[in-house]
Design a protein around this nucleic acid. Structure first.
Lengths: 328, 328
DNA sequence: AATCAAATTGTAATCGATTACATTTATTTC
DNA sequence: GAAATAAATGTAATCGATTACAATTTGATT
């Protein structure tokens, strides 16, 4: 691959002039410009990002931190991020941390090393202390999961309210025994959704029963299956379930489909409105977050930060999507 | 962020010595080593990848090209790629092309610009001509989708055989009317799977009927729904369906669940064994590819190429996973 | 103590771009 | 046509690392 000197030589000009042609910046006479452009074409030249970035100390690369791409919840957000980034001539780097601190570290270093200009973290398992340290010196945005009293700008939805509405919907459709399938409460979203669940129950003077609150080890389907099996073993079975993630809810549906034999139906509400949720049998009632928008706005926030501007936190609206799983 | 000169100054040595400490290379006396290490710690120094890469012209970054992360088929492969890459001190960059040539271009340029050391393409929509050009000068591996007579090393499964076995399974379980839901035949995997489908039909002297072969516009669920609806409108309805992707198969299941009212059941086989395929109702019979292994081996191939070694193409074994959707 | 080899450390070129400043060339003005 | 100004181009420093080669220090040997 040719470099800028070779182009300069070929075109009979200095490297500065070539650089000027490349960056459409200061004045270059049409004659020399076309000479240079010709040389570029002939030698099939592409400017080296390394040289350029080293000099400019910018990479026009954004990191997107997520625990795993296996959760379909992230896909639409990522589309939003990608579209917005590309529109501003940035590219994104999807970084799966697998919830492993070592990997996280690698990606943090990429930012410190100027290999990336900023970070959007969607990883609830991220080491917040280290992320906060990073955010002191580099642009960072939290998307979806956030810190209530932290300094890092975030964009999210009102999880507590959404959960409250979901559970209220279950209660209003005649369920007095509503169980909760949730994950580890070290995650803020889990605490908030549980709070919403409890608020709804209290409002209708229903008792909060610990044995109807099941904590899973992760968000994957199989944990949903397992959770539901445990709930079905209870002496007094719930008649409805609110799961804090569609993947868990779909696992729960599966468990119900397997074990139910003419027994009473169980209503289910999930959270996220992943594309799969309309493919299940029955289709899943769920909370829809404006995921694409969230991705777009998170990116806009990050780009603002990179420019050095201040940004405000954003809380987006959600929506309860009623489908068959609560129409039993 | 401190740079190497500041460390050198602080430690009272030259930048060369600092670099030596950093790279554990040639001899450095224990005394100076510890002085330097102390300075590094004090100033919280991290070497700049940009400077390093520019000099070494390597980035230890691998690109993974895929059309979209929305298809769960890719997730396990990516895990394999990631684990193998990290074990060799490489990182991966997930690149969604969205089947858009412009994006593809951006990523190709990253390789040319030494921002990445090699590419694993899992993108069936990739511009093969440009990829071939890239592969003339840079390490490239094809994973899953490949070119039969091309020069780029690939790893894949025998799609034709897998499809043949899938359809044979349908026929042997009593179905004489087997439809095919496939995608655009510009993709090799689609052509191969269709060939397998036809081979099985021929072997059992069943007629190949064009009206039972439905071509979708994409692999997303909704295309599966639509395809199945069309097939159900046929005067003579198929009793079984082979879909070339689990996502399509699950969409088809959905369509059947919606339209069927005491009518005859329809058997379905998918392809890929995505984690969702065991969550559907009924669970989905499908072809399982060793996705994790495929990712690992693809990465090993790429790393070999980066070292300048030659590599052989690999065809991995698949497996027919029989579940409820063909036990009706 | 002088000599020499080995170990350690430093100097300076290099990777490929950008850009402030200097210089040359073209254009305008009187 | 000379002077003043504007436009075009070139020179060389710079970003932050690595490394060949040179220079120095250390230590062993006689």
């Amino acid at each position: 691959m040719a470099n800028i000197q070779q182009i300069a030589k070929r075109a009979g000009v200095s490297v500065a002039t070539v650089s000027r042609v490349l960056n459409h910046a200061t004045s270059v006479s049409p004659k020399t410009r076309s000479k240079v452009e010709e040389a570029i074409k002939e030698l099939n030249y592409e400017p080296s990002m390394l040289g350029r970035n080293l000099r400019n100390s910018e990479s026009r690369l954004l990191l997107v931190l997520l625990p795993t791409i296996a959760n379909p919840f992230y896909t639409e957000i990522i589309n939003g991020i990608q579209d917005t980034a590309i529109a501003s001539d940035y590219n994104i780097l999807l970084c799966e941390t697998d919830s492993k601190p070592e990997r996280e570290n690698i990606y943090f270093n990429m930012v410190k090393n100027k290999l990336a200009d900023g970070v959007i973290s969607m990883d609830p398992t991220v080491n917040m202390q280290r992320l906060n340290e990073l955010a002191e010196h580099y642009p960072v945005i939290l998307c979806s999961e956030y810190e209530e009293k932290g300094d890092i700008p975030y964009i999210t939805v009102d999880s507590e309210l959404a959960a409250y509405q979901a559970v209220k919907h279950l209660i209003k459709s005649g369920n007095e025994k509503v169980a909760l399938i949730t994950s580890d409460e070290k995650f803020l979203y889990a605490r908030l959704r549980r709070a919403g669940y409890e608020r709804a129950l209290k409002e209708f003077h229903l008792q909060i029963r610990d044995e109807w609150i099941y904590h899973t080890k992760g968000l994957e389907f199989q944990y949903g299956v397992h959770a539901m099996r445990m709930l079905l073993k209870e002496e007094e079975k719930p008649t409805a379930v609110f799961a804090i993630s569609d993947t868990l809810a779909i696992g729960a549906l599966k468990a119900i489909n397997m074990e139910r034999e003419g027994s009473d139906p169980i209503a289910i509400v999930g959270f996220d409105n992943i594309s799969f949720s309309s493919m299940t049998n029955p289709t899943l009632t769920t909370i829809s977050q404006p995921m694409y928008t969230m991705g777009c706005q998170a990116t806009e926030m990050l780009l603002s930060r990179i420019k050095g501007e201040k940004v405000e936190n954003i809380v987006l609206d959600h929506e309860l999507i009623i489908r068959e799983s609560t129409m039993v």
